[in-house]
């Protein structure tokens, strides 16, 4: 029973033999590579290789590019140190894009999570057609973004869009509204579309969390005389808070990265970058203006912001867990 591969065909040893002889025999085996030991490393290697090639390498490349003057087809690429970062800090458009991004993110997260919560609470109750309602509510999530935007654009068309038919029913509105071309309406409309698209996901996850709350807790509360609102406040919400936090984190990241809905509806306009989030700015800079270096610098700033947000939420969750244990 010696040699590197010697024991591998032997099914018996690992847990069955507790005899001193078997233990001794195992100890005497040469340390080294064997098939049983190699499996975890192989599996880990695959994951690490995937992450390395498709995630870490591009991130590293982006960091490197941000220290260059890489503008496609204009000059030879040279290192410029921190010049792009100096430009970033002095760039008013960048700071405005950050502001727009956070505005968009806060409203989308608040809207998607609260709407998802309300829908989940309603559809967690028993009534006829509940399953159909649950399926129907998930439709926006499954709807392709491009198709959703096209329909939305037609609805918002200032000349023959259906929204104006409803708008003109309101007193004081006697001319067609410009909707997506109106600086006051563009951002709320984009946010509304984003919430409509995102809330079914929060709804499904929150619904799953609600169904995991033991029925007995509610029965005990009922025996103690708690009304439904008190049960919601003291049982339901605390029980699903970790899920709500998780949804807030995920929705923050999703909304931070949102590109398609905003680009196709307003392109960052109607003017002055009113709806231009950081992701749109990155795209414009790198792929329309071909300034890869500054695009990469903006990308690094986005990476730092998302990382900061994620760490903040992780910290909040840990703190909450500790408080609950106490």
């Amino acid at each position: 029973m010696s040699g590197v591969w010697g024991h591998s065909g032997n099914i018996e040893p690992m847990f069955q033999s507790a005899t001193a002889e078997a233990v001794e025999e195992r100890l005497q085996r040469p340390r080294g590579w064997n098939r049983r030991n190699s499996l975890p490393y192989t599996l880990v290697f695959l994951i690490v290789a995937y992450l390395g090639v498709f995630i870490l390498f591009p991130i590293a490349q982006q960091f490197l590019t941000s220290f260059s003057n890489n503008v496609v087809g204009v000059d030879k690429v040279t290192w410029v140190g921190l010049r792009n970062y100096e430009r970033l800090f002095e760039d008013d458009d960048f700071w405005f894009a950050v502001q727009v991004t956070f505005t968009y993110m806060v409203f989308v997260v608040a809207g998607a999570v609260s709407l998802g919560l309300v829908a989940a609470l309603l559809l967690n109750r028993k009534f006829r057609g509940r399953n159909l309602a649950r399926s129907a509510i998930a439709v926006p999530w499954a709807f392709p973004e491009i198709s959703a935007v096209l329909v939305f654009l037609w609805m918002c068309n200032p000349t023959f869009g259906v929204l104006n038919i409803f708008a003109r029913l309101f007193p004081g509105i006697d001319a067609n509204l410009n909707w997506l071309s109106d600086p006051n309406l563009a951002m709320p409309l984009v946010i509304a579309l984003s919430i409509w698209k995102a809330f079914p996901f929060t709804f499904l996850v929150i619904l799953a969390a609600l169904q995991a709350i033991p029925r007995e807790i509610y029965e005990a509360a009922e025996v103690d005389g708690a009304n439904p609102l008190q049960a919601l406040r003291h049982i339901t919400i605390p029980e699903i808070t970790p899920t709500l936090l998780l949804m807030a984190v995920l929705m923050s990241i999703f909304s931070f990265k949102q590109f398609t809905l905003i680009w196709l509806t307003t392109g960052g306009g109607p003017y002055g970058g009113i709806t231009e989030t950081l992701v749109l700015r990155i795209y414009q800079t790198a792929f329309r203006f071909f300034d890869l270096a500054y695009g990469a610098t903006l990308g690094v700033s986005g990476f730092v912001i998302v990382l900061g947000l994620t760490l903040l939420f992780v910290y909040a969750q840990q703190r909450q867990d500790r408080a609950r244990r106490r």
Binding site: N178, S181, D182, P183, G269, P270, Y271, G272, G273, Q284, R288, F289
Partner: peptide, 12 residues
């Protein structure tokens, strides 16, 4: 992009 952005203000 600079021109279009400013001109959009004219339009809308």
């Amino acid at each position: 992009n600079v021109v279009m952005d400013k001109f959009s203000e004219v339009l809308v």
